[in-house]
Design a protein around this nucleic acid. Structure first.
Length: 379
DNA sequence: AAAGAGTGAC
């Protein structure tokens, strides 16, 4: 009797205690019905062990957000406010951040505003979480005001994360000069720009046809002894390609290895984009083949660029190949890009092939493409 | 337990 209960206890405690995160999440992730996910999440939240698993929160909220079930996100996150942890800054930060990523800025802002009522300290972490929520929820114009008013009001000193977030907001707004001014404020306030500071600025400038400014910040990065990583180089590749300096871009790509960096799919995409801009089908195909053989895999941007280009140049056989490949790679594209292939086939009277592709696209369970066979026009 | 940098359009 005693031994049986001991065996039972041992079995039970090891199976549960070994990986509580996994057992919690298994149950939740296997559930297909989102309404029941919400119910289970709230039930699980009663356990303080569950409430420690930030990643389960993130995954569940992301799932609900992609299904546009914002009322259910509200339901599970507001439900969290009944627990003691809401008085800990880390927990409030988590809610602010989750609301921000879901695009629910007002909810994020409310959690922040309620913190003092809950005797919850507001440090630079929650200040940054609020700024981050502005960026993620695309309320870029609010960042400037918060940055000017809140530090004094809360007596917090912005740190490098605060500055980086403000820079990101200005870049997203297209206010690149303001982003540059924020950069100048960093050193004036006794802080040092870091890799993220520079990468944010490089993407902002190089990516928005401001090549000269991009180069200016590249120099500043060197002078600050911040070593560029693959993201920095990718931003520069994009800049070179936009400047139609494709030869230089290819050259730079070739130098990556000697700098101890490995090109990733973003590096390849930059070069592929360059050759597509040039209308060079052979090179575009060649670089796609190189990407496939590399340690990286084509992503949705690769396919979007190449399918458009293949349809435009009339290489429908390749377009069909790429179309099929998106499913093997589980890449979900904008339906309008997929439709280009169908339209192209129909125009060439390859209707049977078009129907087959529509069948493939509309029967996959990851995304409803709703592609259609267009009526044939007489011209 | 806790904040920050990744894409696409002639």
């Amino acid at each position: 009797m005693a031994s049986i209960s001991r065996i039972f206890r041992t079995f039970f405690s090891t199976s549960v205690a070994k990986s509580p995160a996994k057992s919690f999440s298994d149950d939740l992730y296997k559930e297909r019905n989102l309404k029941r996910v919400v119910h289970k999440f709230k039930k699980l939240s009663e356990s303080h062990l569950f409430r420690k698993h930030a990643n389960v929160y993130g995954n569940t909220v992301r799932r609900l957000a992609s299904a546009k079930k914002f009322n259910w996100i509200e339901e599970i996150l507001e439900d969290q406010k009944q627990y003691d942890e809401i008085s800990k800054e880390g927990f409030a930060v988590r809610l602010i951040s989750l609301y921000g990523k879901s695009g629910m800025f007002d909810h994020a802002s409310k959690v922040f505003d309620e913190m003092p009522d809950r005797k919850c300290p507001q440090t630079v972490k929650s200040f940054n979480a609020l700024l981050g929520a502005c960026v993620n929820a695309k309320k870029f114009d609010k960042v400037d005001g918060f940055f000017k008013d809140l530090p004094e009001k809360l007596s917090v000193k912005p740190d490098i994360v605060s500055y980086n977030t403000a820079i990101k907001a200005f870049c997203e707004m297209g206010s690149l000069d303001s982003a540059g001014s924020v950069f100048d404020e960093i050193e004036k306030n006794g802080l040092k720009p870091d890799l993220i500071t520079f990468n944010t600025l490089l993407v902002g400038f190089y990516g928005n046809r401001k090549f000269v400014d991009g180069e200016r910040f590249w120099e500043k990065m060197m002078n600050a002894s911040v070593s560029p990583d693959i993201r920095s180089y990718n931003a520069r590749l994009v800049g070179l390609v936009a400047e139609k300096k494709l030869t230089e871009a290819v050259e730079l790509f070739g130098e990556l290895g000697s700098k101890g960096l490995k090109p990733d799919e973003f590096s390849y995409n930059a070069i592929i984009q360059g050759f597509c801009n040039d209308g060079d089908l052979e090179q575009a195909k060649d670089w796609y083949a190189k990407l496939v053989q590399s340690d990286s895999s084509p992503n949705k941007a690769t396919f979007a660029i190449l399918i458009r280009f293949a349809c435009k140049t009339g290489d429908l056989d390749w377009a069909v190949e790429l179309f099929k490949q998106t499913f093997r790679e589980k890449c979900l594209l904008d339906p309008s890009v997929m439709q280009l292939v169908i339209d192209g086939l129909v125009k060439e009277s390859r209707t049977e092939e078009a129907k087959k592709l529509v069948g493939i696209a509309n029967s996959n369970k990851f995304r409803c493409y709703n592609l259609i066979i267009p009526a044939v026009e007489d011209e």
